[in-house]
């Protein structure tokens, strides 16, 4: 399916610190990122037709935590605004759909996460099936280790993933924020010398029970990629969201990436919770803005063992 309108990522910004955001509230972490992305797009705060954010109350430890960041976007007088309790990649998806419907021409999308407020190893168990999984408190590294073991047993990897070792101690916790601006048609061309046109995007989810899945494969990623049009032509770049290193091989196979594709040129494939996926989309777009890519695939994931996957295809004009 060809999208009914041309919509592009026209600007992108992110925090670059690697550890906890000491002494800053989420709104304060976000403010410089919002200003950077709005400056790049030439928009004033509150000027975008639509605003959509992604974050999680469970990470922040308070209800409706996203409302605290609305001050930072200039939300008064009231703006058209929405929020997903997910990685910001899914906020981008919602904003893209909003623009496709013709209800908006521009959108500000942002994500923020401050997992250092709690212990993500405990917090993330609350996203699991409440009857059979959550009462057992299985931490993310333990679940990832099951997948790494399955991949090693199947011969897809040489051995277990050292990153997926629950006995290795607490993982490094990164806080952060990222933002992009989307725009349609001529607005996009005005805001950006080389817009990163979203040619397709889709997201699909695996069954909730890990025991129902083949952990060595990612049918949801493959289906999302197919529906996003990723296989219609080769991509030169792929930005993959890989929370645990062993998952890289699963994604490369599902997305049919060979050695001709530059994978994750931006560096680390993980990143702050709720932000890492939006960062993958933003980095892919930025590469197109710079002229370093003509057709890029961006992927975001959420949940244990690549449970929920989003794939978008971005292109620059020749």
């Amino acid at each position: 399916m060809t999208p009914p309108r041309d919509v592009a990522v026209v600007a992108y910004a992110r925090t670059d610190h690697q550890g906890p955001a000491e002494g800053l509230s989420e709104a304060e972490t976000l403010l410089p990122v919002l200003h950077e992305v709005l400056d790049r797009a030439g928009l004033a705060p509150g000027e975008a037709d639509f605003t959509c954010s992604g974050s999680s109350d469970y990470l922040a430890g308070r209800p409706f935590s996203f409302t605290l960041t609305l001050d930072a976007v200039g939300a008064w007088p009231p703006i058209a605004e929405s929020h997903v309790e997910m990685d910001g990649a899914w906020a981008l998806y919602e904003a893209w759909v909003k623009i496709l419907t013709g209800r908006a021409d521009t959108a500000l999308v942002y994500a923020h996460g401050k997992p250092s407020a709690g212990d993500p190893r405990d917090v993330l168990t609350r996203t699991l099936d409440p009857y059979y999984l959550a009462p057992l408190w299985p931490e993310p590294a333990s679940l990832a280790a099951l997948q790494a073991r399955a991949l090693a047993d199947a011969g897809h990897t040489a051995g277990p993933d050292p990153a997926a070792d629950p006995l290795a101690g607490p993982p490094a916790v990164a806080d952060g924020a990222a933002a992009v601006v989307l725009a349609a048609g001529d607005a996009a061309r005005r805001m950006c010398g080389r817009p990163a046109w979203i040619r397709g995007a889709d997201h699909r989810v695996e069954p909730h029970a890990l025991g129902l899945r083949d952990l060595t494969d990612s049918p949801s990623t493959r289906l999302a990629a197919e529906r996003a049009g990723a296989f219609r032509a080769p991509v030169d770049t792929a930005e993959l969201h890989v929370p645990f290193a062993a998952q890289d091989v699963v994604l490369r196979r599902a997305l049919r990436l060979d050695d001709t594709v530059t994978v994750n040129p931006s560096g680390a494939a993980a990143g702050p919770l709720m932000v890492a996926g939006l960062i993958r989309l933003g980095e892919a777009a930025a590469r197109i803005h710079r002229g370093a890519s003509d057709r890029a695939l961006a992927h975001a994931t959420s949940g244990p063992c690549l449970q929920h996957n989003l794939v978008a295809v971005l292109e620059g004009d020749a």
Binding site: S25, E26, S116, A117, G118, D119, D122, P130, Y131, A134
Partner: peptide
């Protein structure tokens, strides 16, 4: 029904302005 009690601990960061 089943009860699955959960308790999570957080450190609240007031931020620059609120501090």
């Amino acid at each position: 029904s089943l009860a699955a009690p959960a308790r999570l601990e957080y450190t609240y960061t007031a931020g620059r302005a609120q501090t």
